[in-house]
Design a protein around this nucleic acid. Structure first.
Lengths: 143, 143
DNA sequence: TCAATATGGTAAGTATACGTATCATATTTT
DNA sequence: AAAATATGATACGTATACTTACCATATTGA
């Protein structure tokens, strides 16, 4: 054929397709949720439940996004009434973030669904393979 | 702590971060390339070199994207002068795609860099682990 | 053959994602 | 304290990504 490597064997391509599958499964399952969230929005709510009062920069660093992206995500969560934003008293540049009551409720309702859907993302693998895979990914993205 | 699963252990989150690393490595290496391509643009060129004359729908299916996304990708490649688009004679709805001379040259220059960068994406893993990882991903995204 | 259906492409809308620049405010350095 | 630097947030630009709707053209079926 050609001397070029097959695209379908390249890590980058395979990883992209797996991520695609992951987001597709997430979106599909969320269709039947009381509050429809994207996976990024869920991640943000999850972190804010654990660490209320952090600012956007810290939120971004905790879920590994850049500030610009998180700004928009938070804006949408605020518009949905799930997150409240407030100018920090210690640092007037920063906005501290908190879940609203509605945000807490949404997270509580959605969390079990999200936990359940995780296995489906790797549904083509046996349980042993899933565990192995997760070990490898954790190592691959390690700081 | 809480009863919720740790985000950092969830497949979806880990896969997203790995994909993030993958695209970051790609973009970083491309900065020193003669023609700067995104990974999707590279994938499109690669497929068109192997199968000249296919239309956008077929291209989309071969690299696992939807038609709308590929439409924009092709538009940008056409604007860069790397791909030529032509109304199909067999099917007037379809546009057949071909690399231009410039597109061929760009692909030839970039292909070795792309092949080389793949190992870096999984650079935190040993070679044996990389092979293992790829086997698992291939199985996970299998049709 | 003509209606029903399917398919290729585009348009519009939404949501990521990131780089760079800019502004406001903090912190550090001199 | 003034200057230099760093940092939080936003704005803007570019590029994915996917859904739904729509138009044009093909194919299928009655």
């Amino acid at each position: 054929m050609t001397s070029r490597d097959d695209l379908g064997q390249m890590p980058g391509h395979l990883i992209r397709r797996l991520n695609q599958r992951s987001t597709a499964v997430f979106a599909e399952r969320m269709k039947s949720a009381p509050v429809e969230l994207t996976s990024v929005q869920y991640a943000a709510l999850d972190v804010l439940a654990r660490e209320p009062g952090i600012d956007q920069a810290r939120l971004a660093s905790l879920i590994a996004y850049d500030r610009a992206t998180i700004g928009d995500v938070v804006k949408r969560l605020e518009r949905k009434g799930l997150v409240a934003r407030q100018v920090s008293e210690q640092d007037r540049r920063a906005r501290t973030l908190r879940l609203t009551g509605e945000g807490e409720a949404a997270l509580a309702q959605v969390a079990p669904m999200v936990a359940a859907l995780q296995a489906e993302i790797l549904g083509k693998l046996t349980e042993a393979e899933q565990a192995q895979f997760l070990d490898l990914v954790r190592k691959a993205v390690e700081a």
